[in-house]
Amino acid sequence: MRDKPPDTAAFHRSAELQHQMEQIGARFLDRVLPDLDAMEELLAELGAGNASAAAALEMVAHRIRGSSAIFGFSMLSEAAGAIEALLASVQLHGDPVVAMPAIAEGMAAVRSAAQALGASHTAR
């Protein structure tokens, strides 16, 4: 019995998609550090009494978590997910201002993961 011939068109489509994903992923990484700068400003607003900054912070963390996972940046996704979960929890059951040190620590972890990924992409 002859083997089924490989679907070369599907293979090329898949290779093209993977290639493009890498490029989009690199552009996404370029945007994470500015996003973190925006998060730093939101954290300062939260500390200054703007309670709505917590929801905005959660939104940015959520976006980084979801997008980085799609590009396979699991450490970055987990670090952003931890901030998102913390913010969701303290908005429901606590005081976001009290959680500010933990949020800042989580943001440092996100920055560290993004910088490591950025460095590895630059080195390619």
């Binding site: 493009q20 989009i24 945007r31 799609i70 590009f71």
Partner: peptide, 10 residues
């Protein structure tokens, strides 16, 4: 998220 829009479109 513009990057994810691009991925889905592709």
């Amino acid at each position: 998220e513009p990057d994810i829009r691009e991925v889905v479109e592709l």
